[in-house]
Each structure stands twice: as C-alpha cells, then as structure tokens.
C-alpha cells in the first residue's frame, strides 16, 4: 500500500500529470479501491478525473447526446433525459450494484474496466455509442465495440483518457429491454445479462438490436441473430430458430458464478422476452 491521489483541476493539468509517470485513473473508486485492497494492483500514483472532466453531465445535440465520463450510475438512472431518450441505458444503470455504488461509480469507469458483465455496457452496445478520447495529441472517438478489446482490455492509450460518451438518438419508437440474471439482485455480478431494443409492428420486426453480457470475453451483439430476426414475424418458431443461431455466437465459460451450460440456457431463454407484448 501507499499511494498518492492527484486531483487535476482541468484538462491541461491532467495531461501534464499523465506525462509525469505511471498512473491509475480514479473516477468513482468502486472498482479501483477494491482491487487495491485485495492486492490485485499496487499503484503509486492515482489521478482523480472528477474535477478535470467537469461541466454539465449531459449535452443534447440535434442527433446525439453527449454524456460526461464522470456521470454516475445514479445520475443516469434518474435523468429524465436519459429515461426519455434511452430507457435501456437508464434501466441498466439502475441495475448496477446498490444505492451507494450507483452514487459513486461512473459510466466512464464501467467502460474502462471493460468487464464482460458490466451492466451499462449492454446499453452502450445496443445504442452504438462512441467513446470520446482525449490526449495531448488531440481527440479521437471509437465505437464502444472497437474500444473494448477483451475482458478488462481497451484501446485506451497511455496518456489518454475518456472524456465523454456520445450516444446517437434513435429514430422512431423502440421497446427497450434490459435484464440481468444473477444469484441475488444487489451487488451481484451477472451470470448473464441481456438487452434489446425493438421496433416492430404486429406483423413483423422492423428493427432489432440485441446485446449479451457475461457469455463471451466482451459484451457482444450477436449479428447473425439480429440479421435473421429483421423482418420476421415474432412467433415461437422464429424465436427457436434465433436461439439456435445465438448458440453459435456465444462462448460462455465456467466460473464461480455459474457453469457454461447454465449461462447458455439462460442466454437462450432470455430471447423469449422478445415475444412479450
């Protein structure tokens, strides 16, 4: 143990602190300080991002909403803007941890930890969100899918930080769904999580996007299932064919929270939610 926490007040201070040596970022601290306590990491310098990334949490543009990386899960879950534009993001943020952890943990932290079972990532994959990165070289944006490369692994370069997340607005009315399955509700890490947004008439699916967590090294969008469902009538036969396709796209593992077989069963079962309503 033994570390120093540095709190830059603005972007320039932040960038120069990053250049001065090794560091770990701190936003809400709900993952970082647990890892330190459990001796999984032992950083000497910690850079707190919460003051440097300031200003309004949400910025509404014509076609998109920019969300500051330091926005907490509680702020997302309770925002009337997010509940209106992106209900699936509000409900996934509301499913994180427990009251206290939602007040502390941030969306940027959830993204950078890149856990395959992170709740808000399901929504960000569904919404085709972009991650906006800043470094001394300038700015760049990567799609969430390209930013996250594996469990706990991202494209974040040394000297670079996540400033915001840009979420394109949806056109038309979608049904939003998010579900996490775990042994208990609070504080548990999902055995499987799933979300979809769906636009459909009585006859057929007009547009569907699906995302799965905890059944592959990262959150995934099962493209073959999405393609298959497009234009289909929502009935039992469609769902069971989609389930067969989904089976090929997921690669669940055995771990302390659940067996691969259980995860697969749960993942396939959640597809039936599309038939509700």
């Amino acid at each position: 143990m033994g570390f120093e926490i540095l709190v830059p007040e603005n972007e320039d201070e932040l960038i120069s602190l990053m250049e001065e040596g090794d560091y770990q970022f701190l936003a809400g601290g709900t993952d970082l300080f647990v890892k330190i306590k459990k001796d999984l990491i032992n950083p000497e310098r910690i850079i707190d991002l919460t003051k440097a990334i300031d200003g309004p949490k949400f910025q509404v543009e014509q076609n998109e909403v920019k969300i500051k990386a330091t926005t907490t899960h509680a702020e997302l879950a309770e925002s009337s803007l997010i509940n209106k534009e992106f209900p699936v993001l509000a409900s996934s943020a509301g499913a994180v941890g427990a009251t206290q952890l939602r007040n502390m943990g941030t969306i940027g932290g959830n993204i950078c930890n890149a856990s395959p079972s992170a709740d808000t990532l399901i929504a960000l994959y569904l919404l085709n969100a972009d991650v906006d990165l800043v470094s001394s070289d300038g700015r760049r944006s990567l799609s969430i899918k390209d930013f996250i490369t594996g469990p706990g692994e991202t494209e974040l370069a040394s000297g670079e930080y996540v400033e915001s997340i840009t979420v394109p607005k949806l056109s038309g009315k979608f049904r939003h769904f998010f579900k996490k399955v775990g042994r208990r509700n609070a504080l548990d890490i999902s055995v499987c999580s799933m979300g979809f947004i769906l636009k459909a008439t009585k006859e057929a699916i007009e547009e569907i996007r699906l995302a799965y967590g905890a059944v592959a090294p990262t959150v995934i969008r099962p493209g073959a299932v999405e393609d298959f469902l497009q234009g289909k009538t929502i009935d039992k036969e469609t769902i069971s064919r989609a389930q067969r396709l989904l089976k090929e796209e997921i690669s669940p593992i055995n771990d302390i929270r659940g067996s691969a077989e259980y995860r697969e069963t749960v993942a396939l079962r959640t597809l039936e939610q599309i038939r509700q309503n």
């Binding site: 709900t30 300080f33 647990v34 707190d48 509680a74 952890l101 007040n103 502390m104």
Partner: peptide, 21 residues
C-alpha cells in the same frame, strides 16, 4: 454498507472513499 455516510447528501461508502475525493 456498514460504512455508509452522506457525501453531499448522497449515501456513499466511506471504506471506498479517500480524503482527496
């Protein structure tokens, strides 16, 4: 949750909060 205090009125875990924060 045993260490919960309010920070700016929000329930917060004081075991995962350090003074600079």
């Amino acid at each position: 949750g045993a260490c919960t205090v309010l920070v700016e009125g929000k329930p917060t875990l004081s075991c995962l909060t350090y003074l600079p924060q």
